[in-house]
């Protein structure tokens, strides 16, 4: 187990290196933020002076190695615009994003797994078809179209939920729930589709196995067969897809945060990209990549727990 963790952690390092390299050079190919900092009425000379003061005139390799050395000290640099450390900007914004992601995952798993199991159990019935139609719809409707649909119906017309905003659950839990509901539903749609589909497929596969027939033959209750035997053995692909779906989730978070005005990391990075605030973009993409890698590492470890047959 320790060896597994160690190898995986070590193998993550070159991946992070590649991410850093891609992000840094891609951004440097674009222009730079000096003109935006200088503002609407600035002259070219003022822009040039700002460029020098930001160190943007140094050779690229020098800027790159400077940045890497900084990273090794766990320093993501400071925002070019506000002068605030990127780490503290991330810390400020991480809670709403984490809460939205968490509520989406929890909600999606709670809805999608039973849906998938049901569809598998009643394979080829109308229930199955309905579930699969919902799944394809989930993959096909753009997140923001879904968002506006929900806002229009449930926030504006019916007034069941507030239109926008975020309140920390540690401040006012009731308000948190009412504000997070619509964003969670919006974001969950595609995730439910993903998980329900893989659950259905995995359970259908497992249901054909001998030990299920044995269990059924022994007269076990159907529910128990489904959830204890079938689902347990179908867990690996389901957990995998939850891990891989994190990338999808991050993309969805960016849009959902814009629609519902949630001050999270997604909006931070989109705003930073439109302003070319390099340190924030670099820091956040690295951070998202790190989360993705760490989550998938954790999932690898979970595998060995849920499915003892897997060994690395």
């Amino acid at each position: 187990m320790i060896r597994l963790v160690l190898t995986r952690v070590l193998s993550a390092i070159p991946v992070m290196g590649v991410v850093a390299l891609i992000v840094f050079f891609m951004l440097r190919l674009s222009g730079d933020p000096a003109a935006i900092l200088a503002g609407d009425t600035a002259s070219s000379e003022q822009v040039e002076r700002i460029r020098v003061s930001l160190g943007l005139t140094k050779p690229l390799y020098e800027q790159f190695f400077g940045w890497i050395m900084q990273l090794l000290r766990f320093d993501l640099g400071t925002s070019l615009f506000t002068g605030l450390p990127v780490t503290s900007l991330i810390a400020q914004r991480i809670e709403p994003t984490a809460m939205l992601a968490l509520s989406t995952i929890v909600f999606s798993v709670l809805v999608a797994v039973p849906m998938g199991v049901l569809a598998a159990w009643k394979a080829n019935s109308w229930i199955d078809r309905l579930v699969m139609v919902i799944c394809v719809l989930g993959f096909s409707v753009p997140v923001f179209v879904m968002g506006y649909f929900l806002i229009f119906n449930f926030a504006i017309t019916l007034r069941w939920f507030p239109v926008q905003g975020y309140t920390s659950p540690f401040v006012d839990f009731g308000r948190f729930v009412s504000q997070i509901t619509l964003p969670t539903l919006t974001l969950s749609f595609i995730y439910v589709a993903l998980i329900a589909r893989i659950t259905r497929a995995s359970v259908i596969e497992v249901l054909g196995e001998d030990y299920i027939r044995t269990a059924r033959a022994k007269g076990q209750v159907e529910i128990k067969v489904l959830f204890r035997h079938a689902l347990k053995n179908a867990a690996v692909p389901i957990v995998t897809v939850i891990g891989l779906g994190v990338a999808l989730l991050i993309g969805g978070v960016v849009v959902t945060e814009s629609v519902y005005n949630i001050p999270g990391l997604g909006r931070l990075v989109v705003d930073a990209i439109t302003r070319r605030d390099y340190p924030i973009i670099q820091g956040l993409i690295l951070f998202f990549a790190l989360i993705y890698i760490v989550l998938n590492l954790i999932i690898d470890i979970i595998y060995t727990i849920v499915d003892p047959r897997i060994r690395y």
């Binding site: 806002i151 239109v163 814009s258 519902y260 005005n261 909006r267």
Partner: peptide, 17 residues
């Protein structure tokens, strides 16, 4: 408070947020 989307902003004004 910044709103990236004017619809959301307007709805927040209408609802008194």
């Amino acid at each position: 408070v910044n709103f990236p989307d004017p619809n959301t902003a307007l709805n927040a004004l209408v609802s008194g947020e």
